[in-house]
């Protein structure tokens, strides 16, 4: 029974993991190929050819997770009809292009991207879709899970300038990238450049950066300083209070013993009263002055002469061998 339960729970976990994996796929970049501008320099830099050397529109998908997932059996489409909730799964599939199984290229490792050519020609292989992206028009791309029901991601693309692409540069931020920044199968880097560019333009001497960064560094260490200053004070205070409480308790005990000794009511178990009080006095002296948890840390190198260090004690008598008879 236990075995069956563990197998079932493993299966449940495995199924959940699969679903989580699919949700880690995000549309990353879209490029619309315009045959009319193929000769222009802009289009040349942005074009990305398929296995047959043909330029076509493409859709890039990224595995945003840090583990490997397979995108096989997922669906891509630009047909808004699939949003109809009353449509059955088999009917939806007819409006979409399914990513075939059995191709190792569809297995995406962490942060890896895959590019599908929207050329309407699935006979050309796994990376080709059964639809084309409209030129000069806006459209929406939908990425569906393998059940053709769960929408994993979608993006609305306005009509793009020739040679440009539409790319995701942050989690939910998309930007039109110029031809020289189009990056099929590579990270979208426009965002990074923009930050550096912004600093270069608005803070050419680095003063703002210095003020901001020093402010942050000081903030961190001041917060740590404040915390440990207060905490250290509290710890010291607690230790002092504990010590005062202990001393008070001993004082009370000692005064009680002295009082009892004066009255002669102390049970000395046959020990002389003077000896008894002397022992109590010695114990109190040791407690208040002679004992300590923490060493003073003062070292001395002043030599004290003892018989242990006496040179005469270091002399050794040469062992005498017994003569064999």
């Amino acid at each position: 029974m236990k075995k069956i339960l563990s197998i079932l729970s493993s299966l449940a976990v495995a199924l959940t993991m699969n679903a989580q994996g699919a949700h880690d796929f995000k549309l990353n970049e879209v490029y619309v190929h315009t045959p009319a501008c193929c000769d222009s320099s802009a289009c040349k830099t942005a074009s990305y050819v398929d296995e047959y050397g043909q330029s076509a529109s493409w859709i890039e998908i990224e595995n945003i997770s840090y583990s490997t997932h397979d995108i096989r059996n997922c669906f891509l489409t630009i047909d808004p009809a699939v949003l109809d909730e009353n449509m059955s799964a088999p009917e939806r599939e007819t409006h979409m292009s399914q990513i075939p199984a059995g191709d190792p290229r569809t297995s995406l490792s962490a942060k890896q991207r895959i590019t599908f050519f929207a050329d309407g020609n699935t006979n050309r292989g796994t990376l080709h879709l059964n639809f084309k992206l409209p030129v000069g028009e806006s459209f929406t791309i939908y990425l569906f899970d393998g059940n053709a029901v769960d929408l994993l991601d979608s993006v609305h693309v306005e009509a793009l300038p020739a040679g440009s692409s539409y790319a995701r540069i942050a989690d939910a931020e998309w930007q039109v990238l110029e031809a020289d920044k189009v990056t099929p199968n590579a990270p979208n880097i426009a965002y990074h450049n923009d930050k550096i560019k912004e600093f270069k333009e608005k803070d050419p001497y680095g003063i703002a950066m210095t003020l901001m960064c020093m402010g942050v560094v000081f903030s961190c260490l001041i917060l740590l300083f404040v915390f440990f200053h207060i905490f250290g004070w509290a710890m010291n205070r607690a230790a002092k209070l504990a010590r005062v409480r202990a001393i008070r308790a001993i004082h009370e005990q000692a005064s009680k013993v002295v009082e009892m000794a004066k009255q002669g009511t102390t049970e000395t178990k046959g020990i002389d009263m003077e000896t008894y009080t002397a022992v109590i006095g010695l114990a109190l002296h040791e407690y208040f002055g002679g004992t300590h948890d923490l060493e003073s840390g003062i070292l001395t190198i002043q030599q004290t002469h003892t018989t242990w260090a006496d040179k005469s004690h270091e002399l050794r008598v040469t062992p005498q061998h017994h003569q064999a008879n």
């Binding site: 001497y205 680095g206 003063i207 210095t210 960064c213 020093m214 260490l221 300083f225 440990f228 250290g232």
Partner: peptide, 25 residues
């Protein structure tokens, strides 16, 4: 921890980084 105000010296010395940043620019 024993003398937390010394943390501020560690922060101040980081100005070396940003001084060099300005010169590099």
């Amino acid at each position: 921890i024993a003398n937390p105000k010394l943390m501020l010296i560690g922060a101040a010395a980081q100005f070396g980084i940003f001084g060099a940043y300005m010169i590099a620019l």
